[in-house]
Amino acid sequence: MIKVRIPTPLRPMTGGKNEVEVAGNTIAEIIDNLGSAHPGIKERLYDEQGEVRRFINIYVNEEDIRFLTGKETPLKDGDEVSIIPAIAGGR
């Protein structure tokens, strides 16, 4: 099982949990399984083309998956996945 850190905005979909444990051998599998367990969350992470949205970073441990092998990044027991919105701000 892989520990996935959930950002505050998505916690309503995980029953308020800031971390959930999800099965999967790759990021894509983790997100599929996350979406099955917590409906709606997958759509928040992927755009209409099925790519990670332009304002979302997904990290495996301390590395962004864009610098690993993207959604196909393999995972092993003990890895930690963090979902983090990019910085935004107001006027």
Partner: peptide
């Protein structure tokens, strides 16, 4: 949706004026 910041009040959501490109940030 864009900022995935549902916790913001409607006023704050309307106030969002920049959103960094996550890939460039990484």
């Amino acid at each position: 949706k864009l900022s995935d910041l549902q916790r913001l009040s409607p006023e704050e959501r309307a106030d969002i004026a920049f959103q960094m490109d996550a890939r460039e940030m990484a």
